[in-house]
């Protein structure tokens, strides 16, 4: 343990604090579960009949269809919640302590990515549990499921990097919507309710170029046990992570310049 490089030690400490606060402060803990479950319950519960419309072609049931969306949303928005932690630290001044204490400030970013990843894993399990209780249909193999969760957790990294990039620049929780709305749009401009083929007009056009569409499709296919086009999803998520990493790292630089 003590041989761990300083950079990783610092990242681990940041991650520890983040997770510890998540668990011990109810105001942090509850919303992380409530939102994904609201969407899951609301959509899976209300929209079951949508799965019956002509042309809706999915091997598992509509609950499974919405479950994948909820899983991805849980992971992506878990990252956004981290953005609020970052901004809150800047507002309370605690960010200065972090910025002063670590030699390399990128370790703060890594710490948040790590803790958010761990948190997303827990939340994914919870969402899966609730879905299982309300009729989730799983047709894929264990390996296929593992791949599905891997895709989802990569989205958690994307969410964290995006949120960190915004909040290292904005440093104000009030600007939370500027961070949430683009991601909200991004995940909803995908085949949320019906397959891509059934989308029409502008929504079809936008969803066709949205990388999240391909992640969502691949994850659904994996759940249904019919993986195809998974490589497109992997490229999409890798590209997204790469771009967002640059965005987050330049955000750290911006915070340094601004005088955390």
């Amino acid at each position: 343990m003590t041989t761990m490089p300083r950079f990783l030690l610092a990242a681990r400490a940041v991650a520890w604090r983040h997770l510890y606060k998540w668990i011990t402060v109810p105001a942090n803990f509850m919303p992380t579960f409530i939102f994904p479950l609201i969407f899951f319950g609301g959509f899976a519960g209300a929209l079951g009949r949508v799965g019956d419309v002509p042309g809706f072609d999915y091997d598992a049931n509509y609950t499974s269809w919405i479950f994948v969306f909820s899983l991805l949303q849980t992971c992506l928005f878990g990252g956004l919640a981290t953005g609020f932690t970052i901004a809150g630290d800047f507002q309370s001044g605690f960010a200065r302590r972090l910025m002063l204490a670590v030699a390399d400030r990128r370790s703060i970013l890594l710490g948040y990515v790590m803790s958010t990843f761990a948190r997303a894993a827990v939340m994914s399990a919870v969402v899966t549990g609730v879905a299982a209780l309300t009729g989730l249909e799983v047709l894929g193999s264990v390996a296929e499921l593992a791949a599905m969760y891997a895709l989802a957790l990569c989205l958690s990294i994307c969410g964290t990097l995006w949120a960190a990039g915004v909040m290292f620049r904005a440093r104000d929780p009030q600007l939370g919507p500027a961070m949430q709305i683009p991601m909200f749009i991004a995940i909803f401009l995908a085949p949320v309710y019906v397959p891509l083929d059934l989308l029409e007009g502008w929504l079809h056009a936008v969803a066709s170029v949205n990388p999240i569409t391909y992640v969502m499709q691949a994850a659904r296919d994996l759940l249904a046990g019919h993986p195809h086009d998974t490589s497109i999803a992997v490229y999409a998520i890798a590209g997204l992570m790469g771009l967002l990493l640059v965005w987050a790292l330049t955000g750290v630089r911006a915070a340094e310049r601004a005088g955390g």
Binding site: R49, V50, A178, Q180, I181, F184, I185, F188, Y193, L203
Partner: peptide, 29 residues
């Protein structure tokens, strides 16, 4: 505090736009 109310204005319009397009198939039920 526009940052306070803008989301409240934008979010429903967004949901309205996206869902009315994304769920247009529901009218075929």
């Amino acid at each position: 505090r526009p940052q306070g109310y803008m989301p409240a204005v934008i979010m429903p319009l967004l949901l309205l736009t996206i869902n009315s397009s994304g769920l247009s198939d529901a009218t075929r039920i």
